[in-house]
Measured scan of single mutants.
Amino acid sequence: KTVHVDGVEYRFNNPEEADKFVKRLVKEKNGNVEVRGDTYHVE
């Protein structure tokens, strides 16, 4: 899984860790998540 945040790319081998990371980011930023294939885009 890959997570894109503000143009920075984070790669996770463990999908659960990627999910936790995304949830935390969305809370912090009050942002939205767009999923494209295996990539999460957080804005």
Rank of each mutant, 00 (worst) to 15 (best):
residue 1 K to P: 12
residue 1 K to T: 14
residue 1 K to W: 15
residue 1 K to E: 05
residue 1 K to A: 13
residue 1 K to R: 11
residue 2 T to Q: 02
residue 2 T to I: 14
residue 2 T to K: 04
residue 2 T to N: 04
residue 2 T to L: 08
residue 2 T to E: 02
residue 3 V to C: 14
residue 3 V to Y: 03
residue 3 V to T: 00
residue 4 H to Q: 08
residue 4 H to T: 13
residue 4 H to G: 02
residue 4 H to Y: 15
residue 4 H to L: 14
residue 4 H to R: 11
residue 4 H to V: 15
residue 5 V to E: 00
residue 5 V to I: 10
residue 5 V to P: 00
residue 5 V to T: 00
residue 5 V to R: 00
residue 5 V to C: 14
residue 5 V to H: 06
residue 6 D to G: 07
residue 6 D to Y: 04
residue 6 D to K: 03
residue 6 D to C: 12
residue 6 D to V: 01
residue 6 D to H: 05
residue 6 D to P: 00
residue 7 G to W: 00
residue 7 G to P: 00
residue 7 G to T: 00
residue 7 G to D: 04
residue 7 G to R: 00
residue 7 G to I: 00
residue 7 G to Y: 01
residue 8 V to R: 06
residue 8 V to F: 03
residue 8 V to D: 02
residue 9 E to N: 02
residue 9 E to L: 10
residue 9 E to Y: 09
residue 9 E to Q: 06
residue 9 E to P: 04
residue 10 Y to C: 08
residue 11 R to Q: 08
residue 11 R to A: 07
residue 11 R to S: 08
residue 11 R to G: 03
residue 12 F to A: 01
residue 12 F to Q: 01
residue 12 F to S: 01
residue 12 F to G: 02
residue 12 F to H: 02
residue 12 F to V: 01
residue 13 N to Y: 05
residue 13 N to K: 09
residue 13 N to Q: 09
residue 13 N to A: 12
residue 13 N to F: 07
residue 14 N to R: 02
residue 14 N to L: 04
residue 14 N to D: 13
residue 15 P to H: 10
residue 15 P to I: 11
residue 15 P to N: 08
residue 16 E to D: 10
residue 16 E to C: 13
residue 16 E to N: 04
residue 17 E to L: 01
residue 17 E to Q: 03
residue 17 E to S: 02
residue 17 E to P: 00
residue 17 E to K: 02
residue 17 E to I: 01
residue 17 E to A: 06
residue 18 A to K: 03
residue 18 A to D: 01
residue 18 A to V: 03
residue 18 A to I: 03
residue 18 A to E: 03
residue 18 A to M: 05
residue 19 D to N: 04
residue 19 D to S: 04
residue 19 D to T: 04
residue 19 D to L: 15
residue 19 D to H: 07
residue 19 D to E: 13
residue 20 K to V: 09
residue 20 K to M: 13
residue 20 K to C: 15
residue 20 K to L: 12
residue 21 F to S: 01
residue 21 F to M: 01
residue 21 F to R: 00
residue 22 V to P: 01
residue 22 V to E: 05
residue 23 K to G: 07
residue 23 K to L: 11
residue 23 K to Q: 13
residue 23 K to H: 08
residue 23 K to V: 08
residue 23 K to R: 07
residue 23 K to W: 04
residue 23 K to S: 12
residue 24 R to S: 13
residue 25 L to T: 04
residue 25 L to R: 00
residue 25 L to E: 06
residue 25 L to Y: 08
residue 26 V to R: 08
residue 26 V to T: 08
residue 26 V to W: 11
residue 26 V to E: 13
residue 26 V to C: 15
residue 26 V to N: 10
residue 27 K to P: 03
residue 27 K to N: 10
residue 27 K to D: 13
residue 27 K to V: 05
residue 27 K to H: 09
residue 27 K to G: 10
residue 27 K to A: 14
residue 28 E to H: 07
residue 28 E to C: 15
residue 28 E to Y: 10
residue 28 E to P: 03
residue 28 E to F: 06
residue 29 K to N: 13
residue 29 K to A: 10
residue 29 K to T: 12
residue 29 K to C: 15
residue 29 K to D: 06
residue 30 N to V: 08
residue 30 N to I: 05
residue 30 N to R: 07
residue 30 N to Y: 11
residue 30 N to W: 12
residue 31 G to L: 10
residue 31 G to K: 06
residue 31 G to Y: 15
residue 31 G to M: 14
residue 32 N to R: 15
residue 32 N to C: 15
residue 32 N to D: 05
residue 32 N to K: 15
residue 33 V to K: 04
residue 33 V to I: 08
residue 33 V to Q: 04
residue 33 V to P: 04
residue 33 V to R: 02
residue 34 E to H: 11
residue 34 E to C: 15
residue 34 E to D: 09
residue 34 E to M: 12
residue 34 E to V: 13
residue 35 V to A: 05
residue 35 V to I: 13
residue 35 V to H: 04
residue 35 V to F: 10
residue 35 V to T: 06
residue 36 R to C: 14
residue 36 R to S: 11
residue 36 R to V: 12
residue 36 R to T: 09
residue 36 R to A: 07
residue 37 G to I: 12
residue 37 G to A: 05
residue 37 G to E: 10
residue 38 D to L: 03
residue 38 D to E: 09
residue 38 D to K: 02
residue 38 D to V: 02
residue 38 D to N: 10
residue 38 D to Y: 03
residue 38 D to R: 00
residue 39 T to V: 11
residue 39 T to L: 09
residue 40 Y to R: 03
residue 40 Y to M: 08
residue 40 Y to L: 12
residue 40 Y to I: 15
residue 40 Y to F: 11
residue 41 H to W: 15
residue 41 H to E: 09
residue 42 V to I: 12
residue 42 V to Q: 07
residue 42 V to H: 05
residue 42 V to P: 05
residue 42 V to T: 09
residue 43 E to N: 12
residue 43 E to Y: 15
residue 43 E to Q: 12
residue 43 E to D: 11
residue 43 E to T: 15
